[in-house]
Design a protein around this nucleic acid. Structure first.
Lengths: 412, 412
DNA sequence: ATTAACTTTGTGGAAATCCACAAAAGGATG
DNA sequence: CATCCTTTTGTGGATTTCCACAAAGTTAAT
């Protein structure tokens, strides 16, 4: 192994050439990634690479399950902390062989990683030093890439805001813009909004961006921030159960924000899934509506993210307006409330919970901490007092809506 | 018994005096009623009267069950057909002893009845002739009563229309008017509208009026007609289950219109039950809304009469407006419809009926003429295709409303 | 014609619901 | 504080629902 002062003094046309050079020096496969684990360059002519590396090269990004493992196992946190090379033991579950990695730094920020796969040989202390120097040498090359990307990024941001605010009206125009900016086309998509407790700082944004760029649960088409909100244009991967995918993505995003960055209390919402780009504005508005309703009904709809799943809450604003005009007075509800007041009972709540639990006696009883027979007694009472037939769905739905609406109104 | 040419030639100050006179001639208790079986006059000094007569005198009207019996038994139809006296056999179930009756005519119209109770003696042929003459002699006296009543009636009509159109705004003012017109006060009331298939002729109105005046299921405060509609201000008799009372009254009214006058297809609706007179206009509008919705959803809500029972249909106009603006597109419904179209299935209908039957598998299966397992299979399918959780009431309600709303929209 | 995918109907047993009745507890009223 | 009314909880058994599996029938496409 050569021990010049700086083996990377020369000029390299491309990062590929650079990777090959390190590979030759260390006699092992080399991979260079950006801060978001996207593949930037990799050495060729390698006899053996492990499945993780193969997958990375083919999809041009590190598979998400590999990233997750590296987080759990501590390698990535270590690389983000220190400029020293780190040895990573093999993780056979995700097809990852033993390797050494070093982070590439610009000032106080990690802008990439170099990975050296220990296939035939284990790297010595000197080799590790060499890798560290390689990381320093790679800095400028990687930066250049970033610069180019950032300029493009700005144009893309502008486009996204135009779409969100409905300033592009024809499908054709939008499609063209997508093509020129090399944003992939998707048959279905939705706008997702993550709302944080505080305004999004540059620091947090980096972490969010990292999570978004590395996720492979959904396809991220566009992404921007706005005060406390992170706004994404996301495409589900399958046509069958797009809602489920978005749901799972959001839950795992929240979980990772919590686990990795200790950021709790992220509220999330997404609009309907559309096929036409001109509906992006609508999807965005719907996502905002979801967040608004979640604020009003924190417990009721805490596990709802999609506008579709909002169900009846979709038209609560509309109903509230009418209610304020004196419409929709529900004498059944009034009677129940009066009864509750007088007898310190809980009939309204009982009905609400019962309905929320799909008229399931056992579940409702558990939720209310009462005996199932008590519940059935109360229901009989409700039918009498409210003068309603508890098998008539129409009436039940109306009462349910009126109860929720009353709550909504109370919250202003 | 005297056989002058006309034993009623003399002048009688009042109908009471007249009744006493007949009573003396025939040696039996006499009751005079108007066409609606309200008591006009009765003879005093009678040793024995049957329970039916006692009740009639005390409540100043013939009890409804007695009227019903007389209809069924054929006495009233006979009296309305012919000017001859009719003998009515005792009907012990309603406490009615044997009696003879004759109708009082003005031109081609019956304006009242005279009843002679056969307590001690059975009336002879001659007695019957006498009774017929008495009926002729009573005509003018009864007519005078009508005239006076009609003038009052006109002022009352005017008041009612003012109330229905919201032209009296203070509770005080209305209460005063009620008092001066001797309309009884009621703690609760609602506006009922009966809508007939054709415009209401004088003939039909008489029959309707007859039914309304003779009912004792509810208290009739005011009453008028408007093209095809009969409009009532009605007060339920009990505070406990006013809705039920109104419901039963409407059903029995429709039944009687059918049985007695062969008028089918009466649509009925009533507004919410209010306590303040200023809400009469609202109750009227609500009753009209019920009729409007019944027109759109004939099968769904054929057994609904009350605005309260309208349930979710109360705000369909509002939702439709928004829907027309492109809001509330329900992708779940869209998918189900697409599937139905493609596979000639019936998922939307299945869900609708299932929901309408309070999620009862057996009932729904019967209603759809399918095996219960088929239903449960379809439901599983619906959950998959629509990407929804069939235990989530919120989503179910939304889908249900959207299905009904789509139907409503289709009907313009 | 032959798949393959989807739909309907049947069967049986575990689980749950429903209902009537009864006992006990709690609260308001005089 | 005795009493009445309402509410809660318990018990047991008839009925219904739920679910998994199997078989047979339908439909659309190769």
């Amino acid at each position: 192994m050569s021990h010049y002062d700086d083996p990377f003094r020369g000029n390299f046309d491309s990062l590929e050439e650079f990777a090959d050079h390190i590979s030759e020096l260390l006699q092992c496969p080399i991979t260079i990634e950006d801060a978001n684990h996207r593949l930037i360059a990799y050495s060729a002519h390698d006899d053996y690479t492990d499945p993780a590396r193969t997958a990375t090269i083919i999809s041009r990004r590190v598979p998400e399950k590999v990233i997750n493992s590296l987080w759990k196992q501590g390698a990535i946190p270590a690389l983000l902390r220190s400029r020293e090379p780190v040895r990573v033991a093999a993780i056979s579950e995700v097809g990852l062989g033993s390797r050494v990695a070093v982070s590439i730094w610009k000032n106080d920020e990690v802008i990439g990683f170099i990975w050296a796969l220990e296939t035939d040989r284990t790297l010595s202390k000197e080799d590790m030093e060499l890798l560290k120097k390689a990381a320093k040498a790679a800095k400028n090359k990687v930066l250049q890439l970033y610069m180019r990307k950032n300029k493009k990024e700005e144009r893309v941001q502008e486009l996204f805001w135009k779409l969100l605010t409905g300033h592009m009206t024809t499908e054709e125009e939008i499609k063209e813009s997508f093509a020129t900016m090399q944003i992939p086309a998707a048959p279905l998509f939705s706008v997702i909004v993550f709302r944080f407790a505080t305004e999004i700082t540059r620091e947090i944004e980096k972490q969010i961006s990292y999570l978004l760029q590395t996720t492979q649960q959904i396809q991220l088409l566009l992404y921007t921030t706005d005060r406390n909100d992170v706004i994404l244009l996301a495409a589900p991967k399958s046509m069958n159960q797009p809602l489920k995918e978005l749901h799972m993505f959001i839950e795992s995003f929240a979980l990772k924000m919590k686990e990795r960055f200790h950021i709790n209390s992220v509220q999330s919402g997404f609009g309907s899934i559309y096929e036409t780009y001109t509906s992006i504005e609508k999807s965005y508005q719907e996502a905002l509506t979801v967040l608004k309703m979640k604020e009003k009904f924190p417990e009721q709809i805490c596990s709802i993210y999609g506008y579709q799943q909002l169900g009846i809450y979709q038209f609560f604003d509309l109903l509230l307006k009418k209610k304020r005009q004196g419409e929709f007075i529900n004498p059944s509800l009034t009677k129940l409330q009066a009864y509750d007041q007088k007898h310190h009972s809980d009939l309204v709540k009982t009905f609400e919970v019962f309905f929320d639990h799909d008229s399931n006696v056992n579940e409702t009883a558990k939720a209310l901490n009462i005996h199932p027979n008590t519940l059935s007694y109360r229901l009989k009472r409700i039918a009498e007092i409210a003068e309603m037939d508890l098998h008539d769905m129409n009436q039940k739905v109306k009462l349910y809506i009126d109860i929720k609406l009353a709550k909504y109104e109370a919250l202003h």
